[in-house]
Design a protein around this nucleic acid. Structure first.
Lengths: 134, 134
DNA sequence: TCACGTATATGTAGAATACATATAGATGTT
DNA sequence: AACATCTATATGTATTCTACATATACGTGA
């Protein structure tokens, strides 16, 4: 992820040591959000994730399908097979009321997380502005 | 984490389904940052984390000490025992040049992640503003 | 001596993730 | 007809990460 940044080379760090480039746990709220825009199915949701998420991190089909199944097991979404149209059958998902609730919780959680990251970045840039001035 | 938010009750979601309340992987950049402010040791760093991090998530000593050992193994920090002063000996850590590099990489990474979260939140609030208007 | 705060460390079960792989319908190509 | 490719869903599993429990030991005050 940081091959192009120059920093990795400069400091002789071989590979990406920052796992936050990956979409850790982030697929769940994304799927819930996409479904809040209208019913959809795994393959299509995966394409949406690809556009939405982190630049170079491609969504893992296994993650997507398993997360959808988990969400259904817990009652956050419901699915039924869609055999209309061409190609292999699609499992079409829709949000439940409970699923909307979970999405709202995620949004709260993500807002909080964003604030923590902002706090970090603020202190970080202050710190290194100060050092450069010396 | 969301017991107090009311939403969990409203939507009948029993426990916290949003793991982003925890300081997942976030200890590493925090430790690096704290050490960039000056040498320190595990116990003290843990207290700083406690003030810095997510509201109700207390830092896990195991995470802190193990992360510090990992960082040392990889050459991002160096340590030596400090037997001066009272109480049990402290293992005092200092950042290396490589460690500063890693901190900068983390900062880049966190900036990117922040942007992704912002993108999510923006689309989310637009979506639900629109729905309420209907 | 006993509790408590300081300080570091390890063991391990369980959760989460990455990566590989399997299956199968439809379409286009040689 | 055979083959590749795109669409679509699904499972197996090794590895990594995390949470929680627990151990050790120094110093201070009751």
């Amino acid at each position: 992820m940081f091959e192009g940044s120059g920093l990795a080379k400069k400091y002789k760090i071989k590979k990406c040591e920052c796992p936050s480039g990956k979409m850790t746990r982030f697929v769940e709220p994304c799927l819930l959000f996409f479904l809040s825009q209208g019913d959809s199915y795994g393959y299509e949701l995966m394409a949406k994730l690809d556009n939405f998420g982190f630049p170079k991190a491609k969504p893992d089909p296994a993650m997507v399908y398993r997360t959808l199944r988990y969400l259904e097991k817990e009652g956050f979404v419901v699915s039924k097979w869609d055999t209309k149209g061409t190609g292999p059958a699609k499992r079409n998902y829709g949000l439940t009321q409970k699923g909307i609730g979970l999405l709202h919780l995620w949004a709260e959680s993500i807002e909080m997380r964003k604030q923590v990251l902002e706090k970090f970045l603020k202190q970080y840039s202050q710190q290194f502005k100060r050092i450069r001035k010396k």
